[in-house]
Design a protein around this nucleic acid. Sequence first.
DNA 1: ACGAGCATCACTCGAAAGGGTTACGGGGGG
DNA 2: CCCCCCGTAACCCTTTCGAGTGATGCTCGT
Lengths: 203, 203
Amino acid sequence: MTTVLVCDDSPLVRETLRRAVATVPGVERVTTATSGEEVLRRWGAERSDLVLMDVRMPGLGGVEAVRRLLAGDPGARVIMLTMAEDLDGVALAVAAGARGYLHKDASRAELRATVSQALADPTWRLAPRRLRSPDMGVAPTLTAREIQVLEGMSHGRSNAEIGRELFLSEDTVKTHARRLFKKLGASDRAHAVALGFRWGLVR
Amino acid sequence: MTTVLVCDDSPLVRETLRRAVATVPGVERVTTATSGEEVLRRWGAERSDLVLMDVRMPGLGGVEAVRRLLAGDPGARVIMLTMAEDLDGVALAVAAGARGYLHKDASRAELRATVSQALADPTWRLAPRRLRSPDMGVAPTLTAREIQVLEGMSHGRSNAEIGRELFLSEDTVKTHARRLFKKLGASDRAHAVALGFRWGLVR
DNA sequence: ACGAGCATCACTCGAAAGGGTTACGGGGGG
DNA sequence: CCCCCCGTAACCCTTTCGAGTGATGCTCGT
């Protein structure tokens, strides 16, 4: 039973993809999920032969979802979907183990061809593109506090202001900041905010 | 001839929307565009009664597109489309003159109802939500240089590094930075990068 | 021809940020 | 039980930012 799982937070997009994938020869079942969390939750019970997942999703981003999925099941095949030229996100997802990516921009035919090929060849894999950092399998798993600090930064608040807001000392905020910089590989707060957006950690 | 213009950079989404809108009673023609630039370019030749436009588009963001469209034709009716909870973007778009917004998240029925209502009542307008800044009609029209500087920031580069990259003195970069901060209403580079992402100015 | 806006650069100054390091209590996993 | 990670906090020290101000040249539109 060849099953493909489509994961996208928008019902409109999800439905379109579901219908398109259903027409691929050999595909017998197309299931859908609305979030990375849902995919992970259901993976134990029902695995799929191929997962199409949006890079950009609220909550757990697509990149992080792939990472966790592959951590639990290294054999899972995932193709990332991307709206625009979200090269960073895609590169990171591929580095995290996604087999390839598709512009939603792709024509229906292109989409079907890619799905078809990925299903036919279990080892199929897009030639890795410019992956900025070779050891980029590491997860930017930020803690709750770190995300709060990152959000504060994305709203233009200084460390002192973030501290007041979260009832922390400025020094503590700086510690969280330093740690999240290291996790994200950011050189400063502006970079961290940018990476936060690209990873889907903040909006 | 009641015409609705659908603008989204993704063909898949665009087609889905086009088909959905076409089923709304009273709609006689649905045209599509793939970018804000295209909408503006074609507006002089062929106006539409209603525009559905994605907030998040490469190039000219949806927000800026609305602003420019309304600057040229204050009577234009625009409904913004948003993927996720891009509240900032939506708020800014509404402040810029969009009549309302739709989660792509919305059901087909909801979409049709909204389009129908907007067409029926030319004065229809969503109750303005939390618009963070009341005087937010101002455009974040960044110059090419300013965007280059903003992009540099989003890649974690210091002013000096951006200067070297663009063959400018650090002081010049700082001038561009200060100006773009003012335009965006940003308090620092991290905030500017965040706003850049929300406005769709950088990726 | 004039002003507006853009791009360029310089100088000062105070306020942040960021790196390094240390520390302590708590929770969870091996 | 011990170690690692998280959250909290502090200290030092250097670098960078960001605001303010002023100045010149260019181009475009009126």
